[in-house]
Amino acid sequence: MTPRRNTFVMIAVVLVCMTSLAIVASAAEKPQSSGSGRVPMPVISPGQGDSCVEDTDFMRRNHMLVLKHQRDQTMHEGIRSKKYSLKECVTCHAVPGPDSRPVTTSSPQHFCRSCHDYAAVSIDCFQCHASRPDPDVLPSGHAPSSTSPDGPVAEGIE
């Protein structure tokens, strides 16, 4: 075969492989929320209070930017504002566990893990940060709710 023909054959083979892969992939079942598909949809437990600090759509897209900006402000400038504090996120979004304390990231029900496992994006925040609030902490209540008190957090924790 001439080199030109070889090239065409190679291109054709690659195209056929990729097309068949695409057909196979698209024919796979869409994920089911109950876990009967390949990857179960995340079961995102609602946080405390009526709403998050920003609306869901904004948070979905930008929570990583928000956290990154906040961490630099806290570390380098000592600004510990509650609105975007990681500690507050962890406190509000704590998921109760079997031993009456919230779960840590070792459990797939952890709020951050449930989405991040599904999206297959690994995060290393909780290699250093605590993934559940300290035992005697209550959320600071940035939005009024019946379950969390308004006002400053418990003494001793900041």
């Binding site: 500690k87 250093c128 300290d134």
Partner: peptide, 13 residues
């Protein structure tokens, strides 16, 4: 490390 204090983050490496 596990169960760090929330105000004192520290991690391996």
């Amino acid at each position: 490390l596990e169960d760090q204090k929330s105000f004192a983050p520290r991690g391996k490496g």
